[in-house]
Design a binder for these strands. Structure first.
Length: 111
DNA sequence: ATTTTGACTTAAG
DNA sequence: GCTTAAGCCAAAA
């Protein structure tokens, strides 16, 4: 953006978060901590949640593919809340273990 | 600029 | 396994 070189991670945190979120493949999920790390701040898991809540484009950003640590489903601002979130993930092929996501096979590793 | 708040995480009881 | 406490970060008031 600004100059020819992108100067590493000079983008806003929110930008990095949303960008990363868009790259999450269908049928996979990531934890808030993972998103935070990918965005440049491994400890900003909280901020990530806030950004997701204030998510500008719920259609472009698959915020429902972001779950809490251990695969636990956390808040969701649309539909019927967590119920809708789980339904959506299940429909996309994400395996569930009770009320949590089966990270063993459905957690995405960006690498 | 300071305070408040929240879709988090980890550690401890 | 569940509840409580503390740490950390970014956006909104």
């Amino acid at each position: 953006m600004q100059n020819r070189i992108m100067l590493a991670t000079k983008t806003s945190f929110r930008d990095s978060v949303y960008d990363f979120a868009r790259t999450i493949p269908v049928g996979k999920v990531v934890t808030y901590g993972q998103v935070a790390q990918a965005a440049g701040n491994p400890r900003a898991a909280r901020a990530v949640g806030m950004l997701m809540r204030n998510n500008p484009d719920n259609t472009s950003v698959p915020c429902h593919r972001v779950v809490g640590a251990g695969g636990a489903l956390t808040g969701y601002a649309f539909g019927n809340g967590l119920s809708t979130k789980k339904a959506m993930l299940t429909k996309e092929g994400v395996l569930f273990k009770g009320d949590k996501v089966d990270l063993a096979s459905s957690q995405w590793d960006p690498r």
